[in-house]
Amino acid sequence: MTASTASLSPSVAALREKFGAAITRHAVSCGDTIVHVSNERAHEALAWLRDEPTQRFDYLTDLTAVEYRDVERALEVVYQLRSIERKADLRVKIELDKTAPLVVDSVVDLWKGADWLEREVYDMFGVRFRGHPDLRRILMWDTYAEGHPLRKDFPLRGHFSRAEQTRQALSANPEAQYSLEELSIAEAYEELPADMRERLRRGERGDVG
């Protein structure tokens, strides 16, 4: 008990003082502090953790999600924060009720690196990020219709038959996977010759299902 209290991050007390009931619970696991924040005030709390001079969590190490085998347990969105200056870590979790639509606020406005991480969580778990600039699938192709593969109700081999999966794969256009944003020349787009711009424009993305 003493050991776990000793390794508890001081950020928890500061968060509780600032956000009160929005900090639902906290725990220490293997020396790492985990804080659960309610979905409504999560973005506010994460912004505070980044900007508050005593916290300065300026680096988002990872953003992911967990779904547990136990169906009653909530799906969690996990933020692993790091303060490079203070050499401190903090894990923040948001619990999402699986019976309701899975929506959280995007943190791309706080940490730019969250962009692809949030797309991956959307792709694999179907969590939607409110305010994300370009929420599309990132690992599976845009027209993938079988669902979100890392959900527990997703069968290992997918929903469709192998022949149907093969048919859909063979009918895909590999060039349609890329968006302008992903091309390194995106910054120089306006300076490109007109015909090249036209060619780039035609390789457009599909719709997000």
């Binding site: 038959s161 192998r162 022949a163 093969t166 048919r167 063979l170 009918s171």
Partner: peptide, 17 residues
């Protein structure tokens, strides 16, 4: 790849897989 979008019959692909 034929008109049905596969290079083998669908049941053959299911059988192989």
């Amino acid at each position: 790849v034929g008109e049905h979008g596969l290079f083998l019959p669908a049941n053959r692909i299911d059988e192989i897989s």
